[in-house]
Amino acid sequence: MQRRIGQSIKLILLILGAFLMMFPFIWMLATSLKTLPEATAIPPIMFPETPQFGNYLEALQVAPFGLYLRNSILVAGIATLLTLALTVLAAYAFTIYEFRGKTVMFFLCLATMMIPSELLIIQNFITISKLHWVNTFQGIIIPTLASGFYIYMMREYFMQIPSVLYKAAKVDGCGDFRYLMRIMLPMNKNAIATIGILTFISQWNSFIWPLMVAKDDSHRVMAIGLLHFRDAVSSQVNLQMAGATIVILPMLIFYLVFRKQIIEGVSRGGIKG
């Protein structure tokens, strides 16, 4: 009996927590379907009388969300692939090879984790403007690729593979790159999926850097696109919320599809999602 009460309290608290987390989303969704008077009414109305799906059509016409979506997929996708390639190759080198300055280089790699990324923004911006990369995709993508933490994490996984497998592969006529592709990667595919998903999410959600680099719609990603959309329809809250819903939708689907791996990855890496 006592246990049942305990269970019930736990459940109530969880539902309460979930509701608090979900309320802004529900409010956004509800508002996006209201008329303007409903959206601005005082006292506030929770749900619209008749859902105004037309808001979405209108929102889609105010800003080029299709273009923003394409840019977001392009930026996050390419950045994820390149980050994975860079991480895997660096971690592999740190695992397999013995070279002069290896320890120092690895510590420098780790040291990059100690610097808050906000500190680097100005320096990075100066660098890319000297390269004339302002308002280009490479300007948005390339400075974000190297991650000391992911290299460290990948190396930990690689180091768990017994070195005798490397020797066996050598004798079997398997070169270093082939060993990476045929043995190391398949044996660590979970870790690679985790890093890939986490990179994709953080790229999708990144805001300040793409905001600084992109100067026109053709390079804007969804997160910034929303900012400009807000300026365009500043007084129409219902359209703003429709736009916000459109922006969030792809990530929501992504979360639903990769839910299991994301939770695993977050608990494994001990990092924010």
Binding site: P162, V164, L165, A168, K170, V171, I183, M187
Partner: peptide, 15 residues
């Protein structure tokens, strides 16, 4: 790999 040898390890080293 150029020596034409086969090597069997103590802990087998299977993939």
């Amino acid at each position: 790999e150029k020596r034409e040898i086969g090597l069997v390890f103590q802990n087998y080293a299977l993939y």
